[in-house]
Amino acid sequence: MNCTDDEIADRVRKIMVDVLDLRLNPEEITSDIPLYSPTIQLDSLNLLQLLVAVEEEFGRHIEDEDVMEADLVTVGDLLRLVQGQVGGPRTEGEA
Rank of each mutant, 00 (worst) to 15 (best):
L81C: 08
I15M: 02
L51D: 01
R11G: 06
L48K: 00
F58N: 03
E28V: 05
C3Y: 12
I29D: 00
E65V: 11
D32R: 13
C3I: 00
E69H: 12
L20R: 02
V54P: 01
Q41T: 11
L72Y: 13
L79N: 03
L47M: 15
D18S: 13
G76E: 08
R90S: 07
E55K: 01
S37W: 11
P34E: 15
A95H: 10
P26F: 02
T30W: 02
Y36Q: 13
V73K: 15
P26A: 07
L24I: 07
A9V: 03
E56D: 15
R60K: 15
F58L: 07
D64R: 10
D43P: 00
P89W: 00
R11C: 03
V75E: 05
D66G: 08
T30Q: 10
M1E: 10
Q83S: 12
D71R: 14
Q85H: 00
R90W: 01
A53E: 07
G76V: 10
R11N: 04
I40P: 04
L24C: 10
L22Q: 05
P38T: 14
L51G: 02
T39G: 01
I40E: 03
K14Q: 15
E94F: 07
V75R: 01
A9M: 06
I62R: 05
L35E: 09
R23E: 11
L47D: 05
L24Q: 10
D18K: 15
L50Q: 01
E92M: 09
I29G: 02
D64G: 09
A53T: 04
I15Q: 03
R90N: 01
L51K: 01
E92Q: 11
R11K: 14
D32Y: 13
L50W: 02
E27R: 13
F58Q: 03
L42P: 03
Q49E: 14
V86P: 02
L45V: 14
P38W: 09
N46F: 02
C3H: 14
S31M: 12
D43W: 05
L45I: 15
L20W: 10
D43S: 08
D64A: 13
G76L: 09
M68W: 07
E28I: 06
R13S: 02
L42D: 04
Q49P: 01
V17W: 05
V19S: 00
N46D: 08
L35V: 10
D32M: 10
G59Q: 06
L48N: 05
L81W: 10
E63H: 11
L72W: 12
S37E: 13
S31N: 13
D10C: 10
D5N: 13
E27C: 06
P38D: 15
P38N: 14
P34L: 14
A70M: 11
G88M: 09
E92I: 09
D66Q: 13
V75D: 07
P34N: 14
I40A: 03
R90C: 00
I62G: 01
D18N: 13
E63N: 11
L24A: 04
L72A: 08
I15H: 06
H61C: 00
S31D: 15
K14T: 11
D43N: 15
L50I: 01
P38G: 10
E56V: 03
L81S: 08
N2A: 12
L48D: 04
L79I: 15
L24M: 14
L72E: 11
L50K: 00
D32A: 12
D66R: 14
R80S: 11
